[in-house]
């Protein structure tokens, strides 16, 4: 069971990371980050129950809350970009590089 949880968690994390790296749209990258957070939560929850540690479970709850707040802020910024006529893509947001 331990190996199963780790395999599934790592695969999900990798797919989320692929979403962040391979897609150029900020919204798509946000989706990838949410998947990565979910994968980490699964692994942490299983091991919290395996070792009988309620603090790790409390940390999972806090992670979910902070991830939700981060998603809200990210979406707000993306909509702000769209309302300003700027495409929410990594290729368009390269002022610091230039």
């Amino acid at each position: 069971m331990n190996a199963t949880v780790l395999q599934v968690g790592v695969l999900l994390f990798t797919l989320g990371l692929g979403m962040v790296v391979l897609r150029g749209q900020l919204l798509a990258m946000l989706l990838g980050i949410e998947l990565m957070v979910g994968a980490v939560n699964v692994i942490l929850t299983y091991h919290a129950n395996l070792f009988g540690d309620p603090k790790a479970l409390a940390a999972v709850v806090l992670i979910i809350c902070v991830a939700a707040a981060e998603a809200v802020l990210g979406l707000c910024l993306i909509l702000k970009l769209h309302h300003g006529g700027i495409p929410a893509e990594t290729e368009s947001l390269a002022e610091l590089r230039d």
Binding site: N41, V42, N49, I64
Partner: peptide
């Protein structure tokens, strides 16, 4: 999966 991992609350 979280429920199967032992935490229905989470």
């Amino acid at each position: 999966m979280l429920s199967l991992a032992g935490s229905p609350l989470v």
